[in-house]
Structure formats: C-alpha cells, structure tokens
Amino acid sequence: MNEIANIAIIVLILIGAFLSLVAAYGVIRLPDIYTRNHAASKSATLGVMSILLGTLLFFYVKDGFFNSRVLLGIVFVFMTSPVAGHLIARAAYNSGVKLWDKSVQDDLKQAPHIKQSGSKEH
C-alpha cells in the first residue's frame, strides 16, 4: 500500500514539474501572445495542480495529516487560472496586439462592439 502511494506521489510530482517546464518552453517558443496563452494557461494549471496533489498525498501517507488548505489551493487554481488566461487574451486584443502572421481567420475584427480605429502596431 505504502509502495503504491509512494509511486503515485513520485509520478504526480514529476508530471507536474514536467508540465511546468513545458509551459515555460511554450512561452518561449510560440510566436504570439494568444498561442503562448494556450500553453501557459493549460500546462501550468495541470502542472501546479498535480504538484499540489502529490504534496497532499505525501503528507497524508507520511504523517497521516490531511492538509485541507492544499485541497483548497487545488480548487482555487483550477477555478481562477482559465479566467486569468481569458482576461489576458481579451486585454491584449482590446489594446490592439496583432495576431501571428500565419493566422487564417479573425471573426472578432468584424464584431460590432470592437472599435475599428483602435488597433495599432505593437
């Protein structure tokens, strides 16, 4: 039982660290703010969540101590991180940051509530 729990903890923390690394790599490699946002808001969420889950399991197995604050942290990260990604993308679009050159479609440009003259070079 203890061995299985240990393996689960190791796997969770390694996956979390790997996903955080991938998120950082994606922020460096991807071409524009919107695609970077994909990497940052998805990989970082699951990475932090699985590191926290590993921490929770570790202290529960080692000391028998169930830390409910870590559980709350998982829930808060899960709820707030997509909203943060959405707000950053929206703020970028409204302040006129251009899409990547190879982008094929932009329906938002024709939307009636977007100011047409507001876009400028970034």
């Binding site: 991938v22 991807l30 919107y34 994909h38 990497a39 998805k42 899409l99 190879k102 938002l108």
Partner: peptide, 18 residues
C-alpha cells in the same frame, strides 16, 4: 498542447472564430 509544442515545425494555423 504537448503535441503542438514538441513538434519540430510550427505548422499550425491559428485563428479566431465566432
């Protein structure tokens, strides 16, 4: 996201749709 990031070429085509 992993599949997109770790591909050697950036050949995806992003866009915004309604």
């Amino acid at each position: 996201v992993l599949k997109v990031l770790l591909k050697p070429k950036l050949d995806f085509r992003p866009g915004i749709f309604a």
